[in-house]
């Protein structure tokens, strides 16, 4: 049973912005709805108007151009992303992350932009966007902004978006030529779960350009820049990995909740970071009996 609201389905960005302006904070944008409808039902939000942007054709762009990167429109579903071959080839971290989101039925409905706008600390796609240095493109009556993803999240379920502003797309620049990457996610079950911890790792430039980002270990998805810097320097690769692991742990601040304890999350950050880096940097894992 949802509370009453007015439903709008604009067909252009312009119309959507008119509506956003009209209702201000009392409007909620609807894409896949997999977060919004739940919040409505639980009375976590009681907007006057719900603005469905799925009928705005220009928001459903999903396009990769060599050199220019990948553009993901605001209404592109996870399913579309998984089916789009260039994503799997050029942005494997994103592809792997998307593959872990919820279940297949929800992935045919839910959108990546919706995921980042909800700004849950557990957003699976956020660490992937962080390691690809994605840029969020917005529109508003006053024009638009291009916001680096690292500046987009400001707290638990909070973003820099302002009243009357909407995300139009997310752009992932062309990744470095030799980039390899992975997304490791801890879940309570094998089937589907929110991330207890999500680790995105990308390695390029012959192992000098290493990027690490995390979900569910801080109020926002975070990038571990200090840990990344370790690989810019020379030295033994195993030592560097261990140092990076320590710095990664230092850059997160997980809490204990019903899903996992702080200690378990810290352990997962450690072990997943190490496993990802070992694999991507071609280091044989040492099996400790």
């Amino acid at each position: 049973m949802l509370p009453k609201f007015l439903y709008h389905a604009p067909e252009t960005i312009h119309e959507a912005l008119e509506l956003l302006n009209k209702y201000g904070r009392e409007a909620k944008l609807l894409a896949g709805g997999t977060d919004l409808v739940v919040d409505l039902r639980e009375r976590k939000t009681r907007p006057k108007a719900v603005i469905d942007i799925k009928r705005i054709k220009e928001l459903n762009v999903l396009k990769y151009e060599p050199g220019r990167g990948l553009v993901i429109g605001a209404t592109v579903t996870y399913h579309q992303i998984l089916e789009y071959e260039p994503v799997r080839k050029k942005y494997p971290v994103l592809w792997e992350a998307v593959k872990t989101v919820a279940d297949e039925i929800l992935r045919m409905r839910a959108t990546l932009v919706g995921n980042i706008c909800t700004a849950s600390p557990a957003a699976d796609t956020a660490p992937a966007l962080l390691v690809y240095d994605a840029v969020v493109e917005t529109a508003s009556k006053n024009g638009g902004r291009k916001i680096p993803i690292e500046n987009f999240f400001t707290g638990v379920k909070k973003t820099v978006l302002e009243e009357g502003e909407m995300v139009v797309s997310v752009t992932l620049p062309e990744p470095p030529a030799d980039a390899k990457g992975t997304y490791l996610k801890a879940m309570r079950v094998w089937s589907e779960d929110l991330a207890l911890v999500g680790v995105a790792a990308l390695v390029a430039d012959g192992g000098k350009d290493v990027r690490l980002a995390y979900a569910s270990v801080a109020p926002t998805p975070v990038r571990a820049r200090k840990a990344e810097k370790v690989f810019r320097e020379d030295g033994d690769i195993r030592e560097k990995i261990e140092k990076a692991v320590e710095l990664a742990v230092a850059s997160v601040s997980p809490i204990s909740d019903v899903r996992a304890s702080k200690e378990y999350r810290l352990h997962l950050v450690k072990t997943f970071t190490r496993n990802a880096l070992n694999r991507l940097l071609g280091v044989e894992a040492v099996v400790v009996a």
């Binding site: 409808v37 739940v38 469905d52 799925k54 045919m108």
Partner: peptide, 28 residues
């Protein structure tokens, strides 16, 4: 009513969707 159990799944435009998460006017 929150997309967890999926027993309300129907096909919309030949795609499975959890109907508890879709607004009625959306299926116009």
């Amino acid at each position: 009513d929150r997309g967890d159990c999926g027993i309300c799944t129907v096909l919309v435009n030949n795609t499975p969707v959890k109907s508890c998460l879709v607004l009625a006017p959306e299926v116009n």
